[in-house]
C-alpha cells in the first residue's frame, strides 16, 4: 500500500512574527514542518511499521526552501519526496490544485495531511484536494484502522467521537492527538540525504483569494494583581470585571 503525506512548511510556532511593508517578514525566521502535518507523517510511519504501508511519499508545494521540510519527514522515516515548486503566495485553492495534480500521478491508496496549518489556519487544503480528486475525506482523525481497502477512522465530533468507515483511496486528515511524532534520529538525518526527492512544476491555477492586509493582534494590556483576603479580592475582581473589562452579565 502506498501512503502519500502532504506536508506544508510553516513558520516555527515559537518564532516572533513581524510585519514589514504590510507582509510577514520571513527573513531569518526558522521554518518547520507544520506540526499538524508532522502528526500525519508519524501516522504514515506507524502504518509502515505495522506492515500496512509499503512506501511513504511526501509531497510539499512551496518554494525551494520547502525541501528542508521534506528532508525532515524523510529523516523521520518516509521513503521519498516530491517538491511541487510553487509561489508561496498561492492560496488554498491554487495549492490544492497543485497538490492534487502531483497526487494523481502517484496514485496512492491513502493520502494523509494535517487538518490545519499552523500559519494561516484555514483548514481547507485536504478537503479541496479530496474534492478535486473525487475522493472521500475524513477529517480530524485521532485513530485509524486499515483492513483491505477500507479505513475505519475515529474522529473528534462535538461532544464525543465519530467512527467512519471509508473505502480507499481516501484523503484522511489528522488531529494532533492522533499520535506523538518522533524526532528524526541522527541516523535518519544522514539516511534522508540519500533518499530521492523529485521536483515538479505546479499546475497553473489562479488564486481565488486576495489578501488585503496583514496586522498583528493588539498588544495585551497589563493585568492587575490583587493582594488581600480572598473575599476582598473576589469583590474587587468582580468590580474590575464589571467596570473596567465591562463583562456583561446576561
Amino acid at each position: 500500500m502506498k501512503v502519500l503525506v502532504c506536508v506544508k512548511q510553516t513558520f516555527d510556532t515559537e518564532a516572533k512574527i513581524e510585519l514589514k511593508d504590510g507582509k510577514i517578514a520571513d527573513a531569518g525566521i526558522n521554518l518547520i514542518i507544520n506540526p499538524y502535518d508532522e502528526v500525519a507523517v508519524e501516522g504514515a510511519i506507524q502504518l509502515k511499521e505495522k506492515g500496512i504501508a509499503k512506501e511513504i511519499v511526501i509531497v510539499a508545494a512551496g518554494s525551494d526552501k520547502a525541501m528542508d521540510a521534506i528532508r525532515t519527514a524523510l529523516a523521520m522515516g518516509a521513503d521519498r519526496g516530491i517538491l511541487v515548486q510553487q509561489d508561496t503566495a498561492a492560496d488554498e485553492f491554487a495549492r490544492a490544485v497543485a497538490l492534487a495534480e502531483a497526487i494523481k500521478a502517484e496514485n496512492p491508496n491513502i493520502i494523509l495531511a494535517g487538518h490545519v496549518a499552523a500559519d494561516d489556519g484555514s483548514s481547507q487544503v485536504p478537503t479541496r484536494v479530496a474534492e478535486i480528486l473525487g475522493l472521500p475525506h475524513v477529517n480530524v482523525i485521532t485513530a485509524v484502522e486499515i483492513a483491505g481497502d477500507k479505513a475505519t477512522c475515529t474522529s473528534e465530533a462535538d461532544g464525543g467521537t465519530q467512527v467512519t468507515e471509508v473505502s480507499l483511496p481516501a484523503v484522511i486528515s489528522s488531529q494532533v492527538s492522533w499520535n506523538e511524532p518522533r524526532y528524526p534520529s541522527m541516523k535518519g538525518i544522514m539516511a534522508a540525504k540519500k533518499k530521492p526527492v523529485a521536483t515538479a512544476a505546479a499546475a497553473a491555477a489562479e488564486n481565488k483569494v486576495k489578501i488585503l492586509e496583514f496586522s498583528l493582534p493588539p498588544a495585551k494590556a497589563a493585568g492587575i494583581k490583587l493582594e488581600d483576603e480572598p473575599e476582598v479580592c473576589a469583590t474587587k475582581l468582580a468590580e474590575w470585571m464589571k467596570n473596567t473589562v465591562k463583562v456583561e452579565v446576561k
Binding site: 526558522n30 525532515t72 529523516a75 541522527m186 538525518i189 540525504k193
Partner: peptide
C-alpha cells in the same frame, strides 16, 4: 563522504527540539 556543513543545522535543530 558523509557530512556537509548544513548537516550540522539539522542535527542541532533536532537536538534543540528534544
Amino acid at each position: 563522504d558523509y557530512y556537509g556543513a548544513d548537516d550540522f543545522d539539522a542535527i542541532c535543530d533536532v537536538n534543540y527540539k528534544i
